[in-house]
Computed example of a mutant assay.
Amino acid sequence: MAGAPLLSIENLSISLPTADGGRALAVRGVDIAIGEGEIVGLAGESGSGKTLSALAALGLLPAGATTGGRVMFDGRELMGNGGRGAAAVRGRDLAMVFQDPMTALHPMLSVGRQMTEHLVQHRRIGRAEADRIAIAMLDRVRIPNPKEAMARFPHQFSGGMRQRIAIASALAAGPRLLIADEPTTALDVTVQAGILRLIENLRRELKLSVLLITHDLGVMSALADRVYVMYAGRVVERGSRAAVLARPRHPYARGLLDALPHGSPADHPLKALPGSPPSIGRFPAGCAFHPRCRFAADICRADIPELLPVAEGHAIACPIDPLAAVTA
């Protein structure tokens, strides 16, 4: 990444209230940077803290959540001050597409109503101008007959079309950074490829920065310039797409990659990661991945590993780096 980041998450921690009145640490010391016009991938299994980290930037954390660290957007602090920093950029400069477009879009409101309400608020324009912008954006994301689509409701569109509408709605106010949370979940392979092409085209046409959140490293390989891999609330590997996806050094990142289907199942059987990720607030001592790691040593059970460089622009949180010889 060249130059100062557009979005910088620094030493972020997030704790959530528990049913017994205690607190659980869900995100621990996370650092993420996204440059102008850059697509950054954030990968990991469910519960790793990916979406929570993004919601912190938007000021949309669950009630009772407490945070530490800093989130900076173009030099402006977003956390603290009663959430005023995030509220000032949310929807206008910083927008988000949520995982399920059927629940993200209100079923009782027309597409046009949902797309223009925040335009009128954020851009201080009249309804007619908001309609014009919304129609143009629907056309840009390849919605057929966009003027007619404005009067229709979400259930009248396919899953892929709903996701395109959600992207159009998020981009209508002209944000500089889009957070896309699992934008291809539950879509078939052909529709998924179309959504990924759309995001890449919008990045190029609009000079848009994108934080792409997913559990699927295959999605990362199609889009991301740089990749962060999270496990149990921490970043365990970060680097360029080529470094992390072609030669991952952390056993967890390697495991995620090996779990992807490669060719014929007979010739390339799936290698599932053993065990399950830990629950929030019940992270094992030391490296949280050690109960599932075939390379785990005594040091892994005792100490939380720091994220340290292993090559230029490539860092891992693993004290023994067991895959170095294999991937070098």
Rank of each mutant, 00 (worst) to 15 (best):
L6E: 07
L7Q: 04
I9F: 12
I9Y: 09
L12Y: 04
S15R: 15
T18M: 14
R28W: 11
D31M: 12
G35M: 03
E36S: 09
E38M: 04
E45K: 05
L55W: 09
A57S: 15
G59C: 01
M72Q: 01
R76M: 11
R76C: 03
R76L: 00
M79T: 13
G83H: 00
G83A: 08
G83Q: 10
G85R: 11
G91V: 04
A95N: 00
M96L: 15
V97W: 06
V97E: 01
F98L: 10
T103Y: 12
P107C: 06
S110N: 05
S110F: 07
R113Y: 14
R113F: 13
L119A: 12
A128C: 03
D131E: 15
R132W: 10
A136G: 13
N145G: 05
P146A: 05
M150Q: 03
A151H: 14
F153S: 01
H155D: 04
F157C: 03
S158C: 09
S158N: 07
R162N: 04
R164G: 02
A166C: 07
A170H: 14
L171R: 00
L171Q: 01
P175Q: 11
L177P: 08
L178C: 13
E182C: 03
T185G: 05
L187K: 12
E200M: 10
E200I: 00
L202S: 07
R204Q: 15
R204G: 00
E205V: 06
E205F: 12
K207N: 15
K207C: 13
V210F: 08
L212H: 10
L223G: 06
D225H: 15
R226Y: 07
V229W: 00
R238C: 09
G239I: 06
A242R: 15
A246W: 08
R249P: 01
D258M: 13
A259R: 10
S264E: 05
H268K: 04
P269K: 08
L270I: 15
L270K: 11
L273T: 09
P278K: 04
I280W: 10
F283P: 01
P284D: 11
C287F: 08
F289Q: 02
F289T: 04
H290V: 00
R292N: 06
R292G: 00
D298T: 14
C300D: 12
P309L: 07
A311V: 02
P319K: 01
I320M: 12
P322N: 13
T327S: 13
